[in-house]
């Protein structure tokens, strides 16, 4: 029997376990390289060329170029590693976290000032909270297409 992964039924969440870590190894190591100022400069000068120095999958490179952190995470990225891309771009953790919800920066900031996202309806997949798949993207981005939040 394989090991339990009791965390697979938490909505809107990817737990960085050994399997994700293996999948994301080169993506995350690329991110670590951005802790050196000279690497940040080289990356900014030619992102594609810099990414091509790493044994990442093409999908991982596309996800980085698109700055789509949810996509990066699906390909094995971990937020503490991915934060180095955000730092290179001059983004805060709040901007990075917010970007994964579909909300605007202001919408996300207001949610946090208002006490943050409620756990109600967001504990198990299949409930009806705002983090559930059927309610993505959130904020105005969601209103446009679904008419409800």
């Amino acid at each position: 029997m394989s090991l339990d992964k009791p965390y697979l039924d938490v909505p809107g969440t990817i737990i960085f376990d050994a399997e994700q870590s293996r999948k994301g190894y080169w993506l995350n190591q690329f991110c670590m390289s951005l802790m050196k100022a000279e690497n940040r400069e080289r990356f900014k000068a030619d992102e594609r060329a810099y990414l091509d120095e790493w044994a990442m999958t093409e999908e991982q490179k596309q996800a980085v170029l698109a700055r789509d952190l949810n996509w990066c995470m699906r390909t094995g990225g971990n937020i503490y590693f991915l934060a180095k891309i955000g730092a290179t771009d001059g983004k805060s953790f709040q901007q990075m976290a917010g970007s994964m919800t579909g909300m605007t920066e202001e919408e996300y900031r207001n949610m946090m000032v208002g006490g943050g996202r409620s756990p109600e309806g967001n504990r198990f997949l299949g409930e009806d909270g705002d983090a559930q798949p059927q309610h993505q993207p959130q904020g105005k981005a969601g209103h446009k297409t679904t008419g409800s939040n």
Partner: peptide, 20 residues
């Protein structure tokens, strides 16, 4: 890697404080 990661996960949950 797959078996090694499996062992790491199991053994750490059994309170052995491995370095990966």
């Amino acid at each position: 890697p797959a078996l090694a990661a499996h062992i790491a996960q199991s053994v750490i949950q059994d309170d052995f404080d491995l370095t990966i």
